[in-house]
Amino acid sequence: MFDFVRVYLNFKIAASDGICGALAPISPDLFVNACPRFFDGFFVTLELLLLSSVLGFLIAVAVVLARVSSSRFLSIPAHAYIYVFRGTPLLVQLWVLYYGLGSMGAEGLGPLWPFFKEGWWVGLLTLTLNTAAYVAEILRGGIQNLPHGQIEAAEACGMTWSQRMRRIIFPQAIRIAWPAYGNEVILLMKASALVSTITVMDLMGQTRTIFSRSYDLSIFLYGAALYLVLAGLLTLGLRLVEARMTIPSFTQPKSPR
């Protein structure tokens, strides 16, 4: 584990140095000076995005199971959670958790204070909870689009609830939902820029800080370019996963007879 962390830290430094060094001869001074800061921010954004999308996905699975459950004690809270997080702006959610809960301070929050003290953790928490609500709704769409006959057939075979979920429903629901899920990851990447309002030095935070020193608008364009690179990489990664999990006979268009 520590090895992994160390390798990753070294990779970050090497990547930042390498790319900034390579770009230096062909870039304006403004970018060259700011380049290491941009890459600091780039990796903070990437880390927040990967962690929140993975954690958010896990929570979404739990939420969607509760949402489609026949028990009202599960489905109503799950519905309310999805409704509230999709019905309010992320910026409000961030500020409720950071400034709102944070104002209770060390006395009010007790053992939770070290967590809520740091903008990074509050940002991760908010992004995770927010994306979980959207992903849960996407997965619900996937589940409800399955032909009902399949579920009846699985029941008739004597499969238990968990067997049906694991073997029949989820594998198909995820395939149906994957394109929409990919969109959500990109939207999450863009939304993550808002954590710069709670002191996190992500790519947006660095971009705004560099801008506030020079008031040169091209700083924003450099920041945008890095976001576009990230969006491109993500799109590529999502397509690779999609290709891997496609079952050829399922999607290849049947030639008309």
Binding site: K190, L194, M204, F220, A224, L228
Partner: peptide, 22 residues
């Protein structure tokens, strides 16, 4: 469209906010 879809709304808004004056 690719630019808008891949750039945070927040960044676009600030770019317009500062850029329009200029």
């Amino acid at each position: 469209i690719i630019f808008i879809r891949g750039t945070p709304e927040f960044l676009v808004l600030l770019l317009v906010f500062f850029g329009l004056d200029l």
